[in-house]
Simulated assay, not measured.
Amino acid sequence: MSTPTKALSDAGVSIWLDDLSRARIESGNLAELIATRDVVGVTTNPTIFQGAIGNTADHSYDERIAALSARGADVDEAIFELTTEDVRDAADLFRPVYDATAGVDGRVSIEVSPDLAHDTDATVAEAKKLWAKVDRPNTLIKIPATKAGLPAITAVLAEGISVNVTLIFSLERYAAVIDAYLAGIEQAQANGHDVSGIHSVASFFVSRVDTEIDKRLTAIGTEDALALKSKAGVANARLAYELFEQKFADARATALTDAGANVQRPLWASTGVKDPNLPDTLYVTELVAPGTVNTMPEKTLEATFDHGVVTGDTVTGNYADAHAVFDGLAAVGIDLVDATQLLEDEGVEKFIASWHDLQGTVTAALQSAPEGAR
């Protein structure tokens, strides 16, 4: 049976679920989404793990937390064990997809601690530790595209580790991310790694851009400004794909891909619609392009499956319109550099807050584990 999610997959978009929990794995829910919703990967972040482990109605972590408490694990060790186990088990579930797609899909992402977002060396060290602990080839280590993250991305790829670059908001930073990727693959090649086995995605955030820009357009309040509302996020992503096409067609990139390296695929993140006045599949149907990933919260996935209208590529033929949106934003006084830097800073801070909440949740759970387990 043809469904909108099948049509999306046929158009070259890999559907990854932006969520993971022990309950999803053990209940068979994740396997069902693979079978019925064309899901071929999973992304996680500190907010997702806080939601899963902090869910008081979900007791699937109780036994593991009790065992960790019994052996005297501290909070950071417990989080490391719980999250890497979830990712490892999910990776095993996706292994057939990974094998069938020659490593392109079947991917499960886990993020370095957001506390390290501005520390290059510590990010590299934790990325290596996570990669070794999960010990599955279909893992992606998530590293934020902060200024300190860029050299970490290169260094981690140089070790032969596959990377999901997260928290990208601006075209300028995206260009730097692609350069960091190419440098990493060049170094991996020099280090003797099989570069065909190294994969990467660049996670370009969408809805958060509209939320911030729309707030500024509303404050300006002119007719020209208001006419641009809810257009910046899609335009920004479309121009990112244009940049992707340009950068991976140049001599530096083609020298690597000719030697067996993979392109770094664009990934659309933050695709849940936050404005209730907008179509709930906007950031899916308007960002269909070959060789991309769309990582969706379950609500967006179900909306797409139920009533998404997939008409083929909605990106490459719309570059002129996207440039016109950017010209319009500049004309009414929107400072995109300021807005996207603010979004990056807020994105890091939000993940740090979720991480600290997770630490609090796990600390309390370790302390309240049954007496006999401790």
Rank of each mutant, 00 (worst) to 15 (best):
T101M: 06
S113G: 04
D89P: 04
E77K: 15
V75R: 11
D86P: 15
A78D: 14
L93Y: 00
A90K: 04
V87M: 09
I110N: 08
A91F: 01
A100Y: 06
T101R: 07
L93W: 01
R88F: 13
D99T: 05
A100R: 04
S113I: 03
A100F: 01
S109G: 03
A73K: 11
A90W: 12
I110W: 11
D99Y: 03
V104F: 10
R107L: 02
L82N: 04
E85C: 00
D74C: 15
S113K: 11
A100G: 06
G106V: 05
T84N: 12
V108F: 01
R107A: 02
A100V: 06
E77Y: 11
A90V: 08
V104S: 03
G103D: 04
V108N: 03
A73C: 12
S109Q: 02
D86R: 03
V87Y: 09
A78N: 09
A102R: 06
L82R: 10
L82F: 05
S113E: 04
T84E: 06
S113C: 06
E85L: 14
A78Y: 08
V112W: 02
V104I: 10
G106Q: 05
V104W: 08
V112E: 06
T83C: 11
D105T: 01
R88E: 15
D92M: 06
G103R: 00
G106S: 05
F94K: 03
V97A: 09
T84S: 13
R88L: 12
D74L: 13
F94L: 13
R95M: 12
R88W: 06
D105H: 03
A102F: 07
R107W: 09
V104Q: 13
D89N: 15
F80G: 06
R88T: 09
A73I: 15
A90Q: 11
L93Q: 07
V104K: 14
D99A: 07
Y98R: 04
E85T: 15
A73D: 14
E81Q: 15
Y98I: 01
E85K: 11
D86A: 07
R88S: 13
Y98Q: 07
F80Q: 14
P96F: 02
L93D: 15
F94A: 02
A90C: 11
A90S: 12
D74S: 12
A100S: 14
D86C: 14
D92N: 12
E111N: 03
S113L: 04
G103K: 00
D86Y: 08
D74W: 14
D92C: 04
S109A: 01
V112I: 14
V75L: 07
F94G: 05
P96M: 01
T101Y: 01
T101P: 12
T101K: 09
S109W: 09
S109N: 01
P96I: 02
G106W: 00
F94M: 05
E77N: 14
D89K: 09
A78K: 08
I110A: 00
G106A: 03
T84P: 11
V108W: 04
F94I: 04
I110S: 03
A73W: 15
D89I: 02
I110G: 10
